[in-house]
Amino acid sequence: MHIAPSTFGGAIEPAMHIPDGFMSPAVSIILWIAAIAGVGYALWRVNRELDERKMPLMGVLAAAIFAGQMLNFAVTGGTSGHLMGAALATILLGPWASIVVMTAVVSIQALLFQDGGLLALGANLVNMALVGSFVSYAVYRIMQRLVGTRRWGALVSGFVAAWLSIVAAALFVGLQLALSGTSPASLALPAMGGIHLLIGLGEGLITVGALALIAATRPDLLGATGGARGGSNRGVVLAGLAIALLLAVISPIASGNPDGLEWVAEQLNFLDAAQDPAYNLVPDYVFPGVANEKAATIAAGVLGVLIVFGVALFSGRLGRRKDAVG
């Protein structure tokens, strides 16, 4: 049986992991570049902190988040809440290690369980590892300013950070789908944002439950500042804030006035179409006899059948030969 962690219990899950096929190649590749840059920088920061303990810690906590995602609780009517984990990881490990941990979680979900595509992995890393951790960190730090760093402050801050990290990641998914021309911004953004304002509450509650338990049993893990290690990461706070502000400004504009984003989408699709010069190099009649589309489809069908039969024959014969030898 094929069981991905998010399909446990068969409940409807948040549509956070984008599969392949939904994003234009241009958008996918741009987001891959962004992901490589962001994760690469995070790795460099983690390495620079020179704590040898970090590798086993990050690996096992990534496994703990993955296992934690198996725990879900029924909300109502077949929907269920479960954990993404970026906020919890950020509060316990700081933003850079959290990015590495979430990169492991998201990559392994894609590689092993097809929870999110491989070409779409760049986008999923940007949404869940980078945006998730940055927004969590910024919100957590700012909330702590407002409500204090004592136990109560940590819990309230953790709740808001987890909640908004989900909303921000979901809005990014909406933006990416809109930029790819898959879903118009006027629909994708309010839909993704709206649903995840609700789903994010579940993330917030689970994160608070986890933090409460940790604060009660191992308060040292939250440290003197009530979590989110590495207090001098002003840059991360600013980056997280910038992402949040960008979303706050762009989302209503884009969904109210979809032409702007669609224009960008068209430009990007144009890029996709233009990136292969073969389009214009060869005129229509290159394959004589395959002049029109129907004929091409039929030819493809025949060729496909031939490929499949060829391989079937070949592996069949190989299997027999092995039997004969064994």
């Binding site: 906590l61 509650l205 689970i206 439950g209």
Partner: peptide, 19 residues
């Protein structure tokens, strides 16, 4: 949600100690 959070937290703690 609280119970699930406790379970997630205890997974985290076990993971931490194991690491």
């Amino acid at each position: 949600a609280k119970v699930t959070g406790y379970m997630a937290g205890s997974l985290f703690l076990r993971g931490y100690e194991r690491s």
